[in-house]
Design a protein around this nucleic acid. Structure first.
Lengths: 216, 216
DNA sequence: CGACGCTACTCCAAACTGGAGTAGCGTCAA
DNA sequence: TTGACGCTACTCCAGTTTGGAGTAGCGTCG
């Protein structure tokens, strides 16, 4: 008597539905595309990317067709009209609050339990990560600006996304690099006075919190 | 005959161990402190913050003392010498790669499935979030700069953490605000040409990816 | 004296991770 | 020609984490 209970749709469901709205993909292609283009935007594990489209099919938002390629089969997913409607409805909802996990910042917080060298290494690590992500994006950006990329009609959106993450990673690279330079001048992680630079940093942050921020 | 199997320590375990290294806390205080000071740095659910210290006790890294306060008991946790050693060892390891979840960026990516109004709203939402987080931090920052806060000997570390998140939220507020202004000039989300502004944004991003970034 | 809100947690289903495992197929080298 | 890689194309599972519901004592205010 019980109807098959539908697991609720998560943001990840809509991420995949969004990809399917662009064109049909096989499950394998979805995982590759998530790595290539949604790597920064919505990082999810591979196993989830294989199970999630099945939920979409179960909810009637996508259809599968099994294809043979030699002795192997692969699943191709295609969005349904109900899927497009669900996506449009979702676009009307309020987005969830952003979430940041930067383990290096946790190590800064508890740096007084370790050495300046340990802290500097953690900061360099995060800076190098941001730098590496920028470097990894380079060939794709060259392709967008040159040939227009695989979806030239979506370039205006890609520019916004790339512009944001470019600024974000640039900020991280600069901040963590400067912070590492500073920390390397410390002789210990405790008893460090709040010198002019650090005080200025706190004061600049306080200024940013002013109601109706600076128009400059 | 089987020894009680120890669940492995997660980064969250070390986050709590780091707090316990500063001073002893009750479980409830730990959840409040995570809300107050680690809210940005290491956001975790309340239920996890109650179960995690038990793991630390199981691993010998902390001890509990049950205290009575009227008819209620509460658990107070205290770090052990083994806990301090574990924390120092952890500080020597490589931090995990940062992780960002910004649902608004997902909505930008798939904005051509909706309207300019929907996209602008999602962008304003993220900008307002960043603005609100800055506003929430204001009284704490005033307290740090005035009275020195609850742990004045840790102010140099707090300044680094606050400085980073201040820059991050300021970037978000500015970028999402500007992007919303731009998107509101669009008549549709498809067929938008890559105008001078958007092209400049892509080119600036490409410049950032250059090996050995600009020294300016 | 009853409602509300804060303290101080527990419990659970469902979401998600990440690593291991499976298997077909193509290519290059010994 | 055979076997070692590596890519394609997934499944499975144990463990981690979430978030919402539930429980219960205590203080205070009307």
């Amino acid at each position: 008597m019980s109807s098959p209970k539908q697991p609720r749709l998560t943001t990840t469901s809509y991420a995949l539905l969004g990809l399917l709205a662009v064109r049909p993909w096989t499950a394998y292609e979805l995982t590759q595309q998530m790595r290539r283009s949604l790597h920064f935007v919505w990082p999810k594990s591979e196993s989830l990317l294989y199970t999630e489209p099945k939920k979409l099919v179960g909810a009637g938002l996508a259809r599968v067709t099994r294809q043979r390629r030699g002795g192997r089969t692969r699943a191709q997913y295609r969005i349904t009209p109900a899927g497009r409607r669900a996506l449009e409805t979702w676009l009307d909802t309020e987005p969830a609050a952003p979430l940041f996990e930067i383990e290096t910042m946790l190590r800064v917080t508890f740096a007084d339990q370790g050495t300046p060298e340990q802290l500097a290494r953690a900061l360099r690590s995060a800076g190098a990560w941001a730098d590496g992500e920028l470097a990894r994006a380079r060939p794709q950006l060259e392709n967008y600006l040159g040939a227009g990329g695989p979806f030239p009609e979506r370039l205006h959106l890609i520019a916004l996304v790339a512009g944001f993450y470019g600024e974000l990673f640039d900020l991280m690279r600069r901040f963590f690099g400067d912070a590492a330079d500073l920390v390397e001048t410390w002789e210990a992680t405790t008893g460090v006075p709040l010198d002019a630079d650090l005080r200025a940093m706190l004061e600049r942050t306080l200024h940013r919190t002013e109601p109706a921020g600076p128009p400059g």
